[in-house]
Lab assay of single mutants.
Amino acid sequence: MAAAAAAGAGPEMVRGQVFDVGPRYTNLSYIGEGAYGMVCSAYDNVNKVRVAIKKISPFEHQTYCQRTLREIKILLRFRHENIIGINDIIRAPTIEQMKDVYIVQDLMETDLYKLLKTQHLSNDHICYFLYQILRGLKYIHSANVLHRDLKPSNLLLNTTCDLKICDFGLARVADPDHDHTGFLTEYVATRWYRAPEIMLNSKGYTKSIDIWSVGCILAEMLSNRPIFPGKHYLDQLNHILGILGSPSQEDLNCIINLKARNYLLSLPHKNKVPWNRLFPNADSKALDLLDKMLTFNPHKRIEVEQALAHPYLEQYYDPSDEPIAEAPFKFDMELDDLPKEKLKELIFEETARFQPGYRS
């Protein structure tokens, strides 16, 4: 834990890192770190609560700039109880001085990944967590956004079992017609939660990839272990087919990539493993919904509104309290091709509203 900075004593240090967030945020305490930044909790002297502050230093890398800009653009436009918001952003007053960006968010005690390492969940908890994931996802999908990296560590939890989806750095506007060349190379989302079509096709992607990830998360809540822990690309596919069985001819016809289709045709026939054999203690309604989410063919996979209306979630289902976005989200430009200098300018502009004396 960093010592509390005395008023006016300059930035606090946390594990050798400068955290320049005073005077409003003090009493910093280390939480963890990701690929390009550290997260601390801090005391907000204005709202009198502890908050989470993520320090991001992305400006050396085009990919990190892209992810940072995506996350900020999306989260500043989203407003939903099951999606983490941005409360404040701290950065230098000029673009030349801006080396880091500090993002202030609600402090959540833990995440689903940490929880599943230590606790076996009751059916009631599984049901409530799944409902909140789908409630947040309904809003995301209504904005025409794909999260693309749903996994237990991106689901934040607090002691009252509130759940918030975080990390929109890989999110995209849904565009089933656009052929994202190089899709697989830039697709760094965790393999275990990846839909089979991501490994088999490169053309376009749809909201059904997020539903697949939610199915993987439900299976993990039922058993405290990942359902498809593939060691590499082909191993991942083999794990999936080992449980779902061989795809039907109709399902194979959806695979545009001939090499991928021929690979699947070359494999020995596998039978589907019954879900109640894998999860003998699970609620039968939970397994019915799991089956509809972990469907090989993305066109037959359940959609988020149908999933919310499934009998497993009937005690929570309330369409009048499951809000959607006001308007579909649009990125003005494809960020993939922009140089990091341009992305830095866009991050600077996007964060201006939090600067003292800002006038829109």
Results as ranks from 00 to 15, higher is better:
200 L>F: 08
113 Y>I: 10
164 K>L: 10
190 T>I: 07
150 L>W: 05
146 L>C: 03
71 E>Y: 00
253 N>Q: 12
226 P>L: 11
272 K>Y: 05
297 N>E: 06
144 N>P: 06
151 K>G: 05
201 N>F: 06
284 S>Y: 03
21 V>S: 12
152 P>R: 09
327 A>G: 01
235 D>L: 13
236 Q>I: 09
271 N>M: 05
196 P>D: 10
47 N>L: 12
41 S>K: 07
235 D>Q: 10
18 V>M: 08
31 I>R: 01
109 E>C: 10
122 S>F: 04
316 Y>M: 09
31 I>F: 14
338 L>H: 03
214 V>Y: 12
33 E>I: 00
25 Y>C: 13
151 K>V: 10
16 G>R: 14
107 L>Q: 14
63 T>C: 13
51 V>E: 06
310 H>Q: 13
148 R>E: 12
246 S>W: 01
144 N>T: 13
228 F>D: 00
314 E>R: 01
226 P>T: 14
117 K>I: 05
340 K>V: 03
68 T>I: 02
194 R>H: 10
249 Q>R: 07
227 I>T: 01
73 K>M: 14
24 R>Y: 04
352 A>K: 12
183 F>M: 12
69 L>F: 04
208 S>I: 02
29 S>N: 12
276 N>L: 09
241 L>H: 03
272 K>F: 04
329 F>I: 15
214 V>F: 08
280 P>N: 08
288 D>G: 03
207 K>I: 09
334 E>D: 15
5 A>C: 13
198 I>C: 08
159 T>R: 13
286 A>M: 01
90 I>R: 00
223 S>V: 13
307 A>H: 00
22 G>L: 07
299 H>L: 15
216 C>P: 08
39 V>T: 02
332 D>I: 03
6 A>L: 14
221 M>Y: 06
89 I>G: 02
217 I>Y: 06
109 E>M: 08
293 M>V: 01
72 I>Q: 10
266 S>K: 00
127 C>K: 12
279 F>K: 03
186 E>D: 13
342 K>C: 03
168 F>C: 05
186 E>K: 14
184 L>K: 08
96 E>I: 04
90 I>S: 01
178 H>N: 14
198 I>Y: 03
75 L>S: 05
310 H>F: 01
353 R>S: 14
172 R>P: 06
205 Y>M: 12
73 K>L: 14
140 I>W: 12
353 R>E: 10
279 F>N: 01
299 H>N: 15
134 L>N: 06
352 A>T: 13
248 S>D: 05
24 R>H: 10
163 L>H: 05
214 V>M: 13
148 R>T: 07
210 D>V: 14
77 R>W: 11
277 R>H: 07
253 N>V: 12
145 V>M: 12
288 D>I: 06
248 S>L: 10
50 R>L: 10
208 S>R: 03
157 L>T: 11
224 N>E: 09
109 E>K: 14
357 G>Q: 12
256 I>Q: 13
17 Q>D: 06
97 Q>E: 06
257 N>T: 14
